[in-house]
Amino acid sequence: MPDNNRALVSMAQQFSGLPIKALISAPLLAGAEANSKMAITQTQFLLSTCFNVTGSSGSEEYKPIMINMTLTRSVIKPDGSAGDPVETKFDLPLLTIMPLNSLAVDSITVNFEMEVKSSFSNDKETSSESESAAEGSFSAKVGFGCFSAEVSGSVSSSSKSASSEKSHYEKSNSAKYEINAHAGQLPLPEGVTTIIQAFSQCIAPIQLKPTGTTPPPP
């Protein structure tokens, strides 16, 4: 008989020794670290590129660098025809046009797949065959007075037997462990968003006067 009680690999045991925490958290931490580095670099970039620094060390004053924009508006004459577009200039902090929040680790996907398979099979085949043969002969002479007789004969026998046994036993188990961790990009910090909003909302169009004209009295 096959040994059907033979134990398969314990699935729980296979997974228990895994450093799951490290496997998942390490890439996430690396992503967070990269993001943190980027945040610092972006702040440094923001202060050095988008601001003019005045004052001595410790009491620096940061003034946003402004860029000049041209606003174009089309004009429709009273008769309905298109007039020359009107151009207006306005200043905008350089900071507001920089796509700062586009620099971040956008997504981290940790795909960890572990498969444990265990199987066991038992094949047993037995067969037996036996053959036997026997052969014999005899002869006898008997006599009684003037009577005599002779008897002779022969005998043979054979036997054959065969038996076979075949058994197949199989058992298997498998387990799959899949982890999917995802970290998305966070929006800009509230403070930075507020500063940028405040800057962009303070855009006051400045209508340029033709050169040589005197402003009207107040």
Binding site: I67, N68, M69, L71, T72
Partner: peptide, 14 residues
């Protein structure tokens, strides 16, 4: 119908 663009004076800094 407003559109905005960068003024010539600011091309370098931007």
């Amino acid at each position: 119908d407003v559109s905005v663009s960068l003024s010539n004076s600011s091309y370098q800094v931007a």
